[in-house]
Design a protein around this nucleic acid. Structure first.
Lengths: 233, 233
DNA sequence: CAGTGGTCTAGACCACCAG
DNA sequence: TGGTGGTCTAGACCACTGC
């Protein structure tokens, strides 16, 4: 009747979104059932189901058995964001990437590492500090701790040539991770390394990974003020 | 042969993930085709397809027609994070939420608003500043601009009682949004409002929304140092 | 051109839960 | 208990792309 091209899942999804945005279905309102939508559109229920599931994943609708599908009350719920890989990030902006290992030592972990990863205080780890450079300017300072128990090969890895991150990503799989974003003031050490002034507002990304309960690595990444992490909704 | 329970998409997905994490398929390696996996597992190809698509969505594998499915080289690619709704955030921590409107005026937008939203400089907007409070302590400071053209009702909304965010979410649908995270130093105004010291490192969240090319609103949310946004990988 | 993933169909059965 | 979404099956055709 009114269908223009194909009954693709994408078209159906867009159509449903349009009807939500147009106000045809207000927030909280009940949407027709999958069966009736399929009849109206003239496609298989499976196709409608996939479209609605996608909309539910994106937080636009809320689905419940028996009671049906409703337009979400708070459409702003989730955002999928790309985790920046430093080298790609720099090179995609046209910069030249360099990396410098500043420190490599074997040491017992400080308190924040014990807390983040859940490791005992008497187990030695590898402590790495490195600077990521874009066009000869400091771009990000990385302070990393790696579990020797989980990754014994780390002690003989060629970390002068390849960055710890790229080495670990290539060599060590993980099953679970956590990432957090916050702000912090630059202490004197970090300020010196990043060529900024002590007390300036740094953007801090922390990441930890595990392989089935066994801690692998945790790190802090310090970005200078002005760095922005952007994502579409 | 070896299957234990059901051939659910979830089980298959977990099984495939396990085989990736165990090292059976190394990063960059080619995974068997959907057809052969379906045969091996004893299920329909559709089911394998859905499992693999999910893994691709999560960034664990990369799929290409004709060439097949490979284990991703950089398994850390995307993270879906929950966008904090201030009231929920506070109340879920057991705090008491309050909200205070500090400023409400009609004004031509400053440069940063023009840039973020793409609005002309001569079109008046509503400028709102409000403070979100947890247990009588400043929690977040919000600096918002709303397009009168897109939302004429804003001028008569009861913004003393309900927060601008909750009012907009309930009344105005949007089709596109952008959100960004960064750090900044507190200027004197913000420091006073948030009861912190000027120069301290704030965590800044900016959000803008549009409805089909028409700008609706943009805002900056200032969180104090110590605020962390956490997400699982 | 042939083999891979991408997706739609039609039908079926199941799980949940408001009435 | 009946109606809703959740999901699997078997089959089909299409779109892309490396060979």
């Amino acid at each position: 009747m009114k269908s223009t091209k194909t009954n693709s899942q994408q078209n159906i999804q867009n159509d449903l979104l349009r009807r939500i945005h147009s106000g045809e279905w207000r927030p909280g309102a009940l949407i027709p059932t999958e069966v009736s939508l399929a009849q109206e559109i003239g496609c298989a229920r499976t196709t409608v189901n996939r479209a609605l599931q996608k909309l539910a994943d994106d937080g636009h609708v809320v689905r419940k058995r028996r009671s049906g599908t409703r337009v979400a009350l708070s459409p702003v719920r989730k955002a999928t964001m790309e985790i920046p890989i430093v080298r790609d990030e720099i090179e995609s902006k046209g910069g030249t990437y360099k990396f410098m290992l500043l420190l490599s030592e074997k040491k017992k972990p400080p308190l924040w590492v014990q807390v983040r990863l859940g490791v005992p205080d008497d187990q030695e780890m590898v402590h790495l500090q490195s600077l990521h450079i874009s066009d000869n300017h400091p771009y990000m300072f990385e302070d990393r701790w790696v579990s020797i128990k989980a990754v014994p090969e780390i002690t003989s890895a060629p970390l002068g040539k390849i960055s710890p991150n790229e080495w670990l990503v290539r060599e060590v799989p993980y099953s679970r991770g956590e990432i957090s974003f916050s702000s912090c003031s630059a202490d004197e050490t970090v300020a010196n390394i990043m060529e900024t002034t002590p007390g300036s507002a740094m953007f801090l990304v922390e990441r930890s990974t595990w392989i089935y309960q066994m801690p692998i690595t945790t790190l802090k990444m310090y970005y200078p003020e002005g760095f922005r992490l952007i994502t579409k909704l």
